[in-house]
Lab assay of single mutants.
Amino acid sequence: DEVTIHLGDKTIRVDGLDKELLEILKELARRGADEEELRKEIERWER
């Protein structure tokens, strides 16, 4: 499953996201997290 996250004018595509992680990323994005913060969160989950 590829998920596309839209952040204002930026788009991040991620393969096979965990549903819980997806919810966390959506919440972070709502709070104004930037792409770098979201990537760090994704990397934390992948470990």
Results as ranks from 00 to 15, higher is better:
Leu28Phe: 01
Thr4Phe: 09
Arg39Thr: 04
Thr11Phe: 02
Asp34Glu: 09
Arg31Gly: 10
Thr4Ile: 15
Leu17Glu: 03
Leu22Ala: 06
Lys19His: 11
Leu28Ser: 02
Glu27Ala: 07
Asp15Tyr: 00
Thr11Glu: 13
Asp9Glu: 14
Leu38Ser: 01
Glu41Ala: 15
Lys26Ile: 15
Glu35Lys: 05
Glu23Leu: 09
Gly16Asp: 08
Leu25Gln: 00
Asp1Gln: 12
Glu46Leu: 11
Glu20Cys: 13
Glu27Tyr: 01
His6Trp: 00
Leu7Pro: 06
Asp9Cys: 05
Asp1Pro: 12
Arg31Ile: 10
Glu41Leu: 08
Asp18Pro: 14
Glu37Met: 10
Glu23Ala: 11
Glu27Thr: 04
Asp1Lys: 11
Ile24Trp: 13
Thr4Asn: 12
Ile5Arg: 04
Arg39Ser: 03
His6Cys: 09
Thr4Ala: 10
Asp34Gly: 13
Glu2Leu: 14
Arg47Thr: 15
Ile42Glu: 02
His6Ala: 12
Glu27Val: 02
Arg30Trp: 03
Ile5Glu: 05
Leu7Asp: 05
Arg47Ala: 15
Gly8Asn: 08
Arg39Leu: 12
Val14Cys: 09
Asp9Thr: 08
Val14Pro: 04
Ile12Cys: 05
Asp1Tyr: 07
Glu27Met: 04
Lys26Gln: 15
Leu28Pro: 00
Asp1Gly: 14
Lys19Thr: 11
Gly16Phe: 11
Asp1His: 12
Leu38Cys: 03
Thr4Met: 09
Asp18His: 14
Leu28Val: 02
Glu2His: 13
Asp15Ile: 15
Val14Leu: 15
Glu35Pro: 12
Val3Ala: 14
Lys19Asp: 11
Arg31Gln: 14
Lys19Ser: 13
Glu36Ser: 11
Trp45Thr: 03
Gly16Asn: 13
Arg13Tyr: 10
Glu37Thr: 15
Lys26Cys: 03
Gly32Cys: 02
Asp9Leu: 03
Arg13Ser: 10
Asp34Phe: 04
Gly16Lys: 10
Glu27Asn: 10
Val3Met: 13
Ala29Pro: 00
Glu27Arg: 07
Leu17Ile: 15
Leu25Glu: 00
Glu46Thr: 04
Gly16Thr: 11
Arg31Lys: 15
Gly16Leu: 13
Glu27Pro: 00
Ile5Cys: 11
Asp1Ile: 13
Asp15Leu: 00
Glu27Gly: 07
Leu22Lys: 07
Trp45Gly: 03
Gly16Val: 10
Lys10His: 14
Gly32Pro: 00
Thr4Asp: 12
Leu25Pro: 00
Arg47Ser: 15
Ala29Phe: 07
Ile12His: 03
Ile12Met: 06
Ala33His: 06
Leu38Met: 09
Arg44Phe: 10
Glu23Thr: 08
Leu28Cys: 02
Lys26Glu: 09
Lys40Phe: 05
Lys40Ile: 06
Glu41His: 07
Ile24Met: 09
Gly32Glu: 01
